[in-house]
Design a protein around this nucleic acid. Structure first.
Lengths: 196, 196
DNA sequence: GTCTATACGCCGATAGAC
DNA sequence: GTCTATCGGCGTATAGAC
């Protein structure tokens, strides 16, 4: 059994509820109840000075969890042929996006002017993924201009992001491809382009 | 000067505000003020029985506007080579997504259980675009299996959707490619794949 | 059809007992 | 640290005058 402080439980439940319902639609009482406190009591305010400070703490924690695993080229280089590495890379990018699902959902459902932190965190995440992928592509295709590798990376990441956005925001509605099937086509698309 | 009824103005302003701020974050008073009525007066309730009925009316209108322009193959077929048609098709898909921006934004910022109508409307839009594109691809590449054409179309539409999602939800934050640059790479990616 | 006035509830946040 | 109790504000929605 993991020892969790009340503060940690509050952050956990708040981020979950924010991602499911949105920031404004989630009440402080609801968060307290989910964390095992009496709903409606101000118990939350002994740990955070306001509801927005709680959101900020959740975003900071999410950003701290990331930051490892910078050099993707070193991780995947030399494992096999282009298609194999590309498939692994695609799975890795999907995994990162899935880990950040809460943040992406909160970002989508929080008006930018209400909390600029979320928008900035999203931008940092996506820009980082694009840069990593562009770096990897440049390593595999030295004949391509750096700008071309960057453009390919942006489109490729957006293709994965669009898939996850559809999943996150409208779960269960509409026909979705299975992950492996989607990644298979994504890989083929990129491999052919990089070789051309 | 276009004759607009108060009811139309209410729908217009409500959809605009919903897409900018989200459904729950937008108050009835705000909608009334934007439509030229006294904020806080219940004047809105003489046109709609509730705030949710107003949202439903907006979604219905948006869905009615669409529905024309079904057969994309007929529109773009025979115009030129594959790259040319693909570029035009990409612009068309972007245009459709842009026209439906309000709906997509509202869908993203409205919890699914709060209004299933929005989620269903989104699913219909994206599924329709995928089917249109798959149809077009199948026409250009008869050697591909129908399932392959469908998979390519799904990834391609998701790539455009991911781009627009980033624009809509986090406007101004993060480096974004210009439309023409993005579409250029998107076209190249697909053209190479279809020819392979 | 639009207004003023208002009912009634929920929300964020605070005060103070234990 | 958590509780009960409560304040002030804003939310949706309604009643009734004009």
């Amino acid at each position: 059994m993991v020892e969790t402080t009340t503060r940690d439980r509050l952050v956990n439940e708040a981020m979950r509820l924010f991602s499911e319902q949105g920031y404004r639609a989630t009440s402080v009482a609801q968060i307290e109840k989910a964390a095992g406190l009496a709903p409606g009591s101000g118990a939350l305010y002994h740990h955070f000075k306001s509801k927005e400070a709680l959101l900020a703490a959740g975003i900071d924690r999410q950003l701290d969890r990331r930051g490892a695993m910078r050099d993707v080229r070193a991780l995947f280089a030399g494992l096999g042929d282009l298609d194999t590495e590309l498939t692994l890379l695609g799975r890795y990018l999907f995994a990162v996006l899935d880990e950040e699902t809460q943040l992406l959902q909160i970002a989508a459902r929080t008006p930018a002017d209400q909390s600029a932190r979320v928008a900035a965190a999203y931008a940092a995440l996506v820009d980082g993924l694009c840069a990593e992928l562009a770096d990897w592509i440049a390593g595999w295709a030295p004949h391509l201009a750096a700008a071309d590798a960057q453009r390919i990376a942006v489109v490729a990441v957006n293709a994965l992001l669009g898939n996850r956005a559809g999943r996150m925001l409208y779960r269960g509605v509409g026909a979705q491809l299975a992950d492996e099937e989607y990644l298979s086509e994504w890989t083929t698309l990129l491999a052919v382009r990089i070789r051309a």
